[in-house]
Write a protein that binds this DNA or RNA. Structure first.
Lengths: 203, 203
DNA sequence: CGGCAATGTTTACATCGATAACATGAGTAC
DNA sequence: GTACTCATGTTATCGATGTAAACATTGCCG
C-alpha cells in the first residue's frame, strides 16, 4: 500500500502521458473489483476507468480481458501457496499441519471468492497424479507431500493418489459449497469437517 | 431478412405469428446451448434465434435472462433428484445405495457441466442443517436420509450433520475438480473416491 | 539531438441485455 | 358474423461492453 501511495504521488508529481506502471496498476484495480463483483461483472473499461486511463490502454499490456484475469489468477495461485506453506510451518508438520493447510485452502477461498473460483475454473488442466513438481502449483504439491507422509506405510501409490484426491475433494467441495451459500460459512463447521479429513486419510 | 426466413419456417410448422409454446421451446434451446457453452457465453439473442423468434420475444415469458436460466436450474434440480432416487432404488439401500447416489451426483455434474455449475452458484441459500424437507432440494434430502441410516447408532445429531456435510463436500468437490479439469474425469477415479466415502462415514 | 519503439488515446464497430411502442391474431360477447 | 381485447411477437432504440485500427506522446538509445 505504501509503495502504491508513493507511485501515485510520483505520478501526480510527474503527471505524465505515460503511467508509471500501468500493468500492475491494472492488476491491482482488477483485484480490488474482484473482491466485490464476480468475474464477468467486472469490465475492462471499469478497471481502466479506476486507474484513470483510457479503456483500450489495457491492450498494451494484456492481449485481452482473459489475459488480465489470468494474470490475477497466477498471482492468486502464488498467494495461496504461500499461505498454505505458512500454515503448515506455523503448526508443525504431521496431521495438525495437514489440517492447517486444508483450513488455509478453505479460508483463502472464502476471503477471495471470485478470484478463487476463477483460479479453479480458468486454470490449465493439470494432471493430478504426475505433477511437474516445479510448477507454480505449489498448493497441490504441498497436498501431495502431506498425503505421502500421512498415509500408512503399506499404502500403494494408487491408494495414496486416491487419498490425496479425496482430501482435496473435501476441502475444495467444502469451500465451494460455502462460497455458493449452500452451507453457512462458519469456522466451526470448517474445523469439524477438516478434522475428519486427516482421520480419514490415516485410516 | 433472416427474421423473415424464420417466420416462413414457423408458418410451415402450422403456427403463424404465435408460436405454439415458446416458453418451453426457449428453455429447451437454452438447455441445448448450455451443453456446449458456458452460462454467460450463451446470449438470449442466440436462444431466440435458435427458436426462430425475435430477440425480445423472450421477455414475454421471462422477466430477464437470469429468470430463464433460473428456470433451467429448477428443471435441472428436479432431474438430479430423479436420477439420484433412481440410483438408490436400483441398487438397494444401505452403503451401496449411498455410493450410487454419490456417483449419480458426480455423473450428473459431468453430463451437465454448465447447468450444474449454475445450479450451485445461482441457487438460493439453503441452510444445510434444517432443510424444509418439502423443498425441491430432494437431492440434499436424500443425502441426509442416507447419512442418518448409515451413521453409527451412537452418533450425535451434530456428528451426523458433519458427516453429511463431509460426504456432500467429497462428491461436490470431486465433481467440481473434474468439471474444471483439475483432475481427469475418469470413472475409475470416481468409483475409488466414492467408495471411500461411505467407509469414512461408517467409521 | 533525432528518431524509434513503447505506451496511451480517439474513433469505430459488432454484440449484448433491456425498454418502449407497435402489430397480430385467438378467443369471446353480442 | 362483427368488434373488442389481451396475450404474444416484432421493430426500433439505448447504453454498455470487448476489441481493432489509426493516431498521439514520450522515454530512451544512437
Amino acid at each position: 500500500m505504501s509503495t502504491n501511495d508513493n507511485s501515485v504521488n510520483i505520478k501526480i508529481d510527474k503527471r505524465g502521458y505515460h503511467h508509471g506502471d500501468l500493468r500492475s496498476a491494472l492488476m491491482q484495480a482488477g483485484l480490488e473489483l474482484l473482491k466485490t463483483r464476480s468475474a464477468d461483472e467486472v469490465s475492462l473499461r471499469e478497471i481502466a476507468r479506476m486507474v484513470g486511463v483510457s479503456a483500450t490502454a489495457v491492450y498494451r499490456h494484456f492481449p485481452d480481458k482473459a489475459a488480465l484475469l489470468g494474470a490475477l489468477c497466477d498471482e492468486g495461485g502464488r498467494e495461496l501457496g504461500r499461505l498454505q506453506l505458512d500454515a503448515m510451518e506455523k503448526s508443525g508438520g504431521g496431521r495438525t499441519g495437514f489440517d492447517a493447510v486444508g483450513r488455509a485452502y478453505v479460508r483463502f477461498a472464502l476471503d477471495n471468492p471470485t478470484l478463487f473460483r476463477m483460479m479453479m475454473t480458468t486454470r490449465h488442466a493439470v494432471d493430478f497424479l504426475d505433477m511437474p513438481a516445479g510448477r507454480d502449483s505449489s498448493a497441490l504439491q504441498l497436498l501431495r507431500d502431506n498425503i505421502a507422509s500421512l498415509a500408512p506405510a503399506g499404502a500403494s501409490p494408487e491408494q495414496r493418489r486416491v487419498a490425496a484426491l479425496r482430501a482435496w475433494s473435501i476441502v475444495h467441495g467444502l469451500a465451494m459449497l460455502m462460497l455458493d451459500n449452500q452451507v453457512p460459512a462458519e469456522d466451526a463447521l470448517i474445523d469439524a469437517v477438516i478434522d475428519s479429513v486427516s482421520v480419514g486419510i490415516a485410516t
